[in-house]
Design a protein around this nucleic acid. Structure first.
Lengths: 334, 334
DNA sequence: TTGTACGCGTTATCAT
DNA sequence: ATGATAACGCGTACAA
C-alpha cells in the first residue's frame, strides 16, 4: 500500500546527500558525527529498511542461499532444515526453502525459481535431479548435496553411510539372537533405500544366514507402508522375530499393525527404525533407531556453504551414524 | 562463479536490441516471427533466467510473500506451511519462510528481513508480535494472521475457535462417563492455550462438575511436558480416568508416562489430544484428537492473500474444528 | 568531508 | 516493428 522508505527520502528529510546516508548505513568512515547523528535519527523515525533487491543488483550478491527440500512437511527434512536455519542465523545470509516433491520436474522449476532470485549458493536435500544438471549447477555457485553421492562432485556431497547404518542396525538384532529378521525397504529408486537394503543383506550374509526374499517388503517410506508390510507377512504366514524398517515412519506403521494383531513389541517381535526422529523417543515403546545427526548435518551444510561463499576451501566430513538403543528391541528367546 | 546470463547478452548474440528481447520475454505483440524465433533459440542455448531483483526493482513488486512461522520443525506449523506452499504453487508468487522462535525479538528481525526483501504480503503464524506492530504492518501490505485475534484487524485474522474445540473435546469425555478429567494445559502466554483451558473448564461447569485445580498441569506444548504432567499426578496420588491434553505432542508424552506406570489406554485412562497431527492416526493406540484443518488453513491463507494482492476484497471464514474419535477414548466403567 | 554521476538488469515510454 | 533511453534503489569511484 504505502511506498517503502528509501535512502532518497532520508537524504531529503535530513538535508544531506544520498551518498552520505549510504555511507552512514554501511558505517564507512569520514562522516561528521553531527550528520551521522541527524541521519540516524531520521532513519529511526521513518523506519527505513534497505531494499535487498537494489542491494543485490549493485553488489552482485543476494545474500541468499537456496535450499531445495523434497517435502516441507516431512519430519526427516525438517530436522535438517532446522539445522540449516540455525546455521545461517546471524550471518546476514538468508535461506530460501523450496519444494521438489521428489519429482525431477518440480525440482528443476524450483531451482530455476531460485536462480531467478539470484541465490549465491544452493543446498539440495536428496532429490532426483539428473547428475548432469547438478554438475552444471556446481559451476554456477557453491553447491552442497545432502544425502546424495554424485561422481565428480565428491567435494559437494555430504554423505551418510546408509549401508553401514543398516548393517549395524541389523547386526544389533542378530546379536540379540534374532535369526528371522524381516525388512521393510524404502522406495527402490532412492539410493538410500537401496543401500539400507544392501546393509541388511550384508549383515545377514556375514552372520551366515540365508537371505529369504519373503521377509522383505517394499514400502514407500510412510506409515501405511509399515502397516501393509506386517499385514502381508501375517497373512502369508511368514514368521519373524524382528523387523528392521528403513525409516521410522514405516516402523510406526508396523508397530500399529502388530498391535492390532495382538503381537507385542518387544516381547514377541523386536522393532528397529532408521532416522531416529524426535518423536521416536516418545513412541510406544520408545523405538530403537539408527540415528543420523540431521540437525547437525543441516548446520554443517550451512556452515560449509558459508565458508565457500567467501572463496575459502573446506572439506565435508563423512557423517557418522549411531544406533539409539531403546525399548523396542530385546533378546530373542528360543 | 560464472556470471549469470542477462538480456544484454542475449541481445548481443541474437543481434537485436535489448528491448526486443524484453518484449519477447513478456510476449508482447509487434515482433517479427523470425526475430522471435532467433531470440528464443539463443535463450535456450544460453539458459537465461530473468533476474528477479531487477524485475522487482522496476516493477515495484517482488512476487514474494513472507511467511513468519515460529518453529520450522514443528509438525503443527509444517502442516500449515505445506498448505501455504501448495496454495502458492503455480501462481508466480513465492513464499519465503522465516522463523520467529516464539520470541518477539526474533520475530521482529525476521519481519524486517522480509521487508528488506520487499515482500508483497505477509502471513504470520501465531507469534508474539505486539498488536501495535501488526497494525503497522497491515498498512504496508496485505497481512494474514493465522491463529491470532487482534482487535481492529478482524479482516486479517484467520480464527480457529479454540474455546469451542476444547469444549467439544472435554464434552466427548464427559459423554463417555468420565468425571475426573485431567488437563495438560499449554503455555499460558499463548492465547490458544488459555482458550483451550477455558473450554475445558466451561465444559466441566456445564456438566455440573466442580473445577479441581489439582487436575490441571501447565505444560509447554512438548512431549516431556506430558510425561511430567502424568508423573506429577501419579506422585501426588491424584485420581483421574481421562486426560485432555492441549496438543498432541503433550498427549504422546502422557501416553508414554502412563505406559511406564502400567496404566493402560484406553482401558484405565482415556486420552484426548488437540491438533490431530498426521502421526496421531498411527500412534498407539490411535489418538482421539481435535482436528484443525491445518493444511486447508494454509492453503486458504495463501489464496486469500493472493486475491488481496490483486486489490480484490475477500472475507476469511471462521475455521471449524471437528473431533477425530479414535481408539484412545472409551466408556468409563464405574 | 561531502556531493555528483554512473551502473547493476529489467521494464516501459518514447521516438524512429 | 524496433531501438534508444529513462527510471527503479542502492553502492561507489570520482570530483569538489
Amino acid at each position: 500500500m504505502s511506498r517503502n522508505v528509501t535512502i532518497k527520502d532520508i537524504a531529503k528529510v535530513a538535508g544531506v546527500s544520498i551518498s552520505t546516508v549510504s555511507r552512514i548505513l554501511n558505517n564507512a568512515p569520514l562522516v561528521t558525527p553531527e550528520k551521522r547523528q541527524k541521519v540516524l535519527e531520521v532513519i529511526g523515525q521513518l523506519g527505513y529498511e534497505p531494499n535487498a533487491s537494489a542491494q543485490g543488483l549493485v553488489r552482485g550478491k543476494s545474500m541468499t542461499v537456496g535450499v531445495l527440500t523434497q517435502d516441507i512437511a516431512s519430519p526427516f527434512y525438517n530436522e535438517v532444515a532446522r539445522g540449516i536455519d540455525v546455521g545461517f542465523s546471524g550471518t546476514g545470509y538468508q535461506p530460501i526453502f523450496v519444494n521438489g516433491h521428489w519429482e525431477a520436474q518440480d525440482e528443476a522449476s524450483a531451482v530455476a525459481a531460485l536462480i531467478r532470485r539470484q541465490v549465491d549458493g544452493l543446498i539440495i536435500l536428496g532429490g532426483r535431479l539428473p547428475e548432469q544438471q547438478l554438475h552444471a549447477l556446481s559451476e554456477r555457485f557453491p553447491l552442497i548435496l545432502v544425502g546424495r553421492y554424485v561422481p565428480g562432485l565428491e567435494h559437494c556431497c555430504m554423505r551418510v553411510d546408509d549401508l553401514q547404518g543398516a548393517y549395524l542396525a541389523t547386526r544389533h538384532l542378530l546379536e540379540l539372537g534374532h535369526r528371522r529378521i524381516a525388512h521393510i525397504a524404502g522406495i527402490t529408486s532412492h539410493r538410500d533405500a537401496v543401500e539400507r537394503f544392501e546393509g541388511y543383506r550384508m549383515a545377514l550374509t556375514d552372520a551366515g544366514i540365508d537371505f529369504d526374499e519373503s521377509l522383505v517388503y517394499e514400502g514407500e517410506f510412510d506409515e501405511p507402508s509399515g502397516i501393509l508390510a506386517v499385514e502381508s507377512w501375517v497373512t502369508k504366514g511368514v514368521h519373524f522375530s524382528a523387523i528392521f524398517a528403513a525409516n521410522d515412519q514405516m516402523a510406526y506403521g508396523a508397530r500399529l499393525a502388530l498391535y492390532r494383531r495382538g503381537i507385542r513389541v518387544p516381547e514377541d517381535v523386536s522393532l528397529v527404525g532408521y532416522d531416529d526422529l524426535p518423536a521416536s523417543s516418545f513412541s510406544l515403546p520408545p523405538l530403537t533407531s539408527m540415528h543420523q545427526p540431521l540437525f547437525e548435518m543441516g548446520e554443517l551444510a550451512a556452515q560449509t556453504i558459508l565458508t565457500r561463499l567467501q572463496d575459502q576451501d573446506c572439506e565435508i566430513p563423512q557423517i557418522a551414524v549411531t544406533l539409539s538403543v531403546r525399548e523396542s528391541t530385546r533378546y530373542h528367546r528360543r
